[in-house]
């Protein structure tokens, strides 16, 4: 983990409400370059909402967001956020099911491809060169994720675990400055979880990606993350290293309920 103190993403006092429900209440957090940060919390705590705010899917009512040293408007189109260098996977599989694996990953590079309309239609010169160049980069990711044998299969036909892996590949393809993973291991068996954990660690250590992830499996979170932020009912209740979080009484309360008074 690098020791730069300037955070790559800084969110200050983010507030958003849906109707009467305050989904995020003055949440502030920082993500530092080169770290793996986890956002945890019980169901409905506002974790996915937070990611959607970062991506620009939701516009927060209040707060400030800085990315890469510059303040970002609160209301922004998601594809502009992607162009700034934030990539994302989804809680419920969001692969393009009718396309094959390599095309799915290729879509992740869309912000890097600039061949014009007519050049693409003729498939000559710049467009052809660009396609081949990016195909090579995609093959690198396919190689990294060990999915060579399924590169030409339709993504919708793949088993669940592999689909999750292809989705990770699609997010990696844009070579993001910040990679957001929304429950990358949900619904997986132990072996698949270990695989994904290994890929996340490799992406962090070998390629140097900054990663923020949401995950419910505490074992994995405690093992691979440098820092943890805990949300509960839209509030940030704790932040710190895995060891600090494990012994934090507020966190234990949020997960297990009040110890005294006989439970509920």
């Amino acid at each position: 983990m690098s020791q730069k103190t300037e955070p790559i993403l800084q969110m200050e006092a983010i507030e958003i409400s849906f109707g009467g429900l305050k989904a995020l209440d003055k949440v502030s957090l920082q993500v530092y370059p080169g770290e793996i940060m986890a956002i945890i919390g019980p169901n409905g705590a506002g974790k996915t909402t937070l990611l959607n705010v970062i991506n620009g899917v939701y516009t927060p009512d209040n707060g400030r967001i800085f990315f890469d040293g510059k303040e970002r408007p609160l209301k922004i189109k998601p594809h502009h956020v992607a162009a700034m260098g934030i990539s994302r996977t989804f809680q419920n599989l969001a692969l393009f099911k009718g396309m094959d694996t390599w095309s799915n990953i290729m879509v992740g590079r869309t912000k890097k491809m600039h061949a014009g309309f007519f050049s693409q239609g003729i498939y000559w010169g710049m467009s052809q060169k660009e396609e081949i160049e990016h195909r090579e980069a995609v093959e690198g990711i396919i190689d990294f994720l060990e999915i060579e044998n399924i590169r030409k299969q339709p993504a919708g036909m793949l088993p669940y675990g592999l689909q999750k892996r292809v989705e990770l590949g699609r997010a990696l393809a844009s070579e993001p400055k910040l990679l957001l993973l929304d429950e990358p291991m949900a619904g997986m068996n132990l072996e698949e979880k270990e695989d994904i954990a290994r890929f996340i660690l490799d992406a962090n250590e070998e390629i140097g990606y900054t990663i923020a992830l949401i995950e419910h499996d505490m074992g994995v979170v405690m093992d691979i993350c440098d820092r943890i932020v805990v949300l509960d009912f839209g509030n940030k209740i704790a932040e710190g290293t895995p060891d600090e979080i494990k012994s934090n009484p507020k966190v234990i309360k949020a997960y297990l309920g009040e110890a005294e008074g006989g439970g509920e």
């Binding site: 189109k77 998601p78 969001a94 009718g98 992740g108 869309t110 467009s127 997010a171």
Partner: peptide, 22 residues
């Protein structure tokens, strides 16, 4: 080419496509 892939991405999952950068 990339145009066709972006089209199909919109067809299959438009929200994800936009977050990915389409």
């Amino acid at each position: 080419g990339q145009l066709g892939r972006n089209w199909m991405a919109i067809r299959d999952m438009d929200v994800a496509a936009e977050i990915i950068g389409v």
